[in-house]
Write a protein that binds this DNA or RNA. Structure first.
Lengths: 229, 229
DNA sequence: ACGATAAATTCTACAGTGTAGGTTTAACAA
DNA sequence: TTGTTAAACCTACACTGTAGAATTTATCGT
């Protein structure tokens, strides 16, 4: 490990550091991640990093932003309608999570206020607004959508260190109903499962919209039918 | 700090340790939490803890289980119908999260396979099944519901260290639509907001159920009406 | 009553962490 | 040239999780 003489540039900057950090966490996991290991990976003294990033917390933020940026990449050929744009974003988000399963917890845990994140939300809400969804529904949508996305992906990815972990085995005598349903959870972590749940969430948003605009619409009739047992 | 002579019991056990750990994290946060601090709080040598709990990871698991147990407490006077039981559980879960905002990230991050957690899920799915919801819908429900709950609560609680953090301020010229919607996000973290989103999620589940049982029901008509522009 | 065994606690020590503060060098402006 | 600034390195410190061993007490079969 030949150390560079002081004063010479090592070509460090926020982006390079964050990218290397992501690679490192992808490989070794968040637990083993540390400033010193990152420095070694970069062939650099640990303290050099601190000239570009304030501390470990800021380093984690930089990593979050780096992987989030992958989602927005190629947003030009995104579809137009609010449902299509939402589905597109959700799928890109999911793919990113599967690419970086060990980085993803950072995203879900830390508040995302970077320009890339806000721009994506802005696209979402404007599309919804232009489609005529009620303001309250639009205002709730981002928190609701990403609430679901973060929680779901966290759960699905938290098993195995690489990608999807299996559904934990279940004691059939203690929890008979869940045991019965086990076969239906075969595709745990699959795109099909993701789409089913995403559909349900979007359906929830859509129905709130319809109900507000038209009091005798879908949702209400469904309720009425249910009430009639 | 008078140390106890070796051999004498300090009355330690998994529960007492976990409870003390929760108190400590509630007070000082996860970052400052450590085995040594917990030991000092308990008036005990750090290594004593390791005789009851394998390591720090297991300690965090124990804390998760401890706060999760609060949710199930008083489950006897829970309602009966699947929607009521789901709402009841969701609200208890939310209240727990607000009681322990700094512990909650552990719950959302780590897979919960403790008996209390599984028992709660079993109650949920049996109620749904008895109500006649299609199996696939029932099988998806837990992951979908707790996906949303974890992600939403994580987002809402991740701001301030104590309870709810404010919605971050937004640049009105860069993100005009979001800025317009800001007033509608006034109740960020409120029960009202939570209920709105929970309603939407439950509506999503309900509609999937209705659609499967009755192909010409609510959801489908809503789609048709939308297609007619 | 007694010796053996097991359990709970403490003690010691070590490798590893984040980072504050200071030092060195190179590049550049005047 | 000389002074300044930026980027890197070096040293040091307080702190962490925990392995391994020592110590004391309680329990139990005989």
């Amino acid at each position: 490990m030949t150390r560079r003489t002081q004063g010479t540039s090592a070509g460090l900057d926020r982006e390079r550091i964050a990218a290397a950090a992501v690679v490192l966490v992808d490989r070794d996991g968040l637990e083993r991640f540390g400033v010193r290991r990152l420095a070694e990976e970069l062939g650099v003294d640990p303290m050099s990093i601190y000239h570009h990033i304030k501390g470990k917390a800021a380093l984690l933020d930089a990593m979050s932003q780096a992987v989030l940026a992958e989602v927005a990449a190629g947003a030009d050929d995104a579809p137009r309608g609010w449902e299509e744009i939402t589905r597109w974003t959700a799928h890109r988000y999911r793919e990113m999570a599967y690419r970086h399963p060990r980085v993803f917890p950072l995203l879900a845990t830390r508040a995302q206020t970077s320009p890339v994140a806000l721009a994506a939300l802005e696209r979402l809400v404007t599309a919804m607004r232009e489609a005529g969804l009620p303001d309250q529904v639009v205002a709730d949508a981002p928190l609701m959508l990403f609430g679901f996305l973060n929680g779901y992906l966290l759960a699905v990815l938290s098993g195995g260190p690489d990608g999807v972990g299996d559904m934990p085995a279940i004691d059939a005598t203690a929890y008979p109903t869940m045991a019965t349903l086990m076969p239906l959870q075969a595709g745990f972590g699959s795109v099909a499962e993701f789409d089913r749940m995403l559909d349900a969430v979007l359906g929830g948003i859509r129905n709130r919209a319809n109900r507000q605009g038209d009091p005798l619409s879908a949702q209400t009739t469904a309720n009425a039918r249910r009430a009639l047992h």
